[in-house]
């Protein structure tokens, strides 16, 4: 790892100013950044440690919303009683992510900045070509080992998968990222690779995530996060789904449905086509399975990741049906 200078920010404003300087990066839990610095992917000149800032780790849950401070730890949010009861998908996405130790380190804001596990991206010494690291250098993954790569939202420049769990739940429930005064919907915060895979987030140098806000809703309250993987734990998703549902008074007709996918796309993937196909309909297994296929409309595989196209709709269908059962 290259050496860097280290400073502790005394305030949010100081952190923003420091982070705006060339070569500076914000350091929170470090579970992505220190890892990538060791890989030679991140080469910061200055790390601005924000973990000691006060007042940014709150978790406030009301009828209207949950507002989670950027420095709240993943593990704490997962175990928070009101998050569990009002936003079960968020809690489940969190506790199924990484390991208990990493969840004690990683912050909610930092988690949104988590980067892909693409082995080519992570290995600059051996694979210099990576459009995400070096725009225009090419993509080593295409034609390589693609078992863990995205099937949705890819481009000719990049097929790297977004590996996180939390943001999948967030995008399903229209969460908003607070960048100090300004706010960005989570769905817009994550960018498609297109021709600029190096730009992953709608955040500029000098900006800092201060909180995320998740609107409360009946569908968030009745939600789940289903994560499928070869290993039982401590593994990234082969495919996952965050699903929330609200029924009409009859208890059968779907009033509101939220569906988002993880483990299959270049960003947390909201599947509105599935939602639209089922809203207003009576929940019925065959209809759910048929509609779930819309989740992977337009998907393209690179051989070894083809199974994700088969798997993802099944995960979506199971999650929707599971939420229906608990009526």
């Amino acid at each position: 790892m290259r050496d860097f200078s280290y400073l502790r920010a005394a305030s949010v404003d100081a952190a923003r100013q420091a982070a705006a300087l060339p070569g500076a990066m914000l350091l929170a839990g470090g579970t992505t950044l220190i890892d990538l610095a060791k890989c030679g992917v991140a080469e910061p000149e200055t790390l601005v440690d924000i973990t000691h800032l006060k007042g940014l780790n709150g978790i406030e849950v009301s009828e209207r919303s949950a507002i989670i401070g950027a420095l709240a730890k993943m593990g704490h949010v997962a175990d928070h009683a009101d998050i569990k009861s009002r936003f079960p998908a968020v809690s489940e996405a969190l506790w199924q992510a990484a390991s208990a130790q990493i969840r004690n380190m990683a912050t909610i804001g930092g988690n949104l900045m988590q980067r892909t596990r693409c082995p080519y991206f992570r290995d600059p010494a051996n694979f210099p070509a990576c459009n995400k690291r070096e725009p225009g250098s090419g993509c080593s993954a295409i034609g390589g080992v693609t078992k863990g790569h995205a099937v949705l939202g890819t481009s000719d420049a990049c097929i790297a998968m977004y590996p996180g769990d939390l943001a999948v739940a967030l995008v399903a429930f229209d969460a908003v990222v607070h960048l100090g005064q300004s706010q960005v919907p989570v769905d817009d915060f994550f960018l498609l690779p297109g021709t600029t895979p190096d730009r992953e987030h709608a955040i500029e140098p000098g900006e800092m995530i201060t909180a995320i806000e998740i609107p409360g809703s009946a569908s968030a309250r009745r939600s789940t996060y289903l994560k499928i993987r070869d290993r039982q734990s401590y593994e990234f998703a082969a495919a996952s789904a965050a699903v929330g549902i609200e029924f009409e008074a009859d208890g059968r007709t779907i009033r509101d449905l939220r569906v988002a996918l993880g483990g299959v796309a270049t960003k947390p993937w909201r599947a509105r086509a599935v939602e639209d196909a089922l809203k207003g309909k009576v929940l019925e297994p065959d209809a759910v399975r048929a509609a779930s296929l819309l989740a992977v409309e337009g998907a393209t595989d690179h051989g070894a990741n083809h199974y994700k196209i088969e798997l993802a709709p099944r995960v979506v269908a199971r999650a929707i049906l599971k939420m229906g059962e608990t009526a």
């Binding site: 290993r231 734990s233 401590y234 990234f236």
Partner: peptide, 10 residues
């Protein structure tokens, strides 16, 4: 992380 050996939960 990606060369898997079983974890306790397996």
């Amino acid at each position: 992380a990606e060369y898997h050996v079983p974890v306790n939960a397996d």
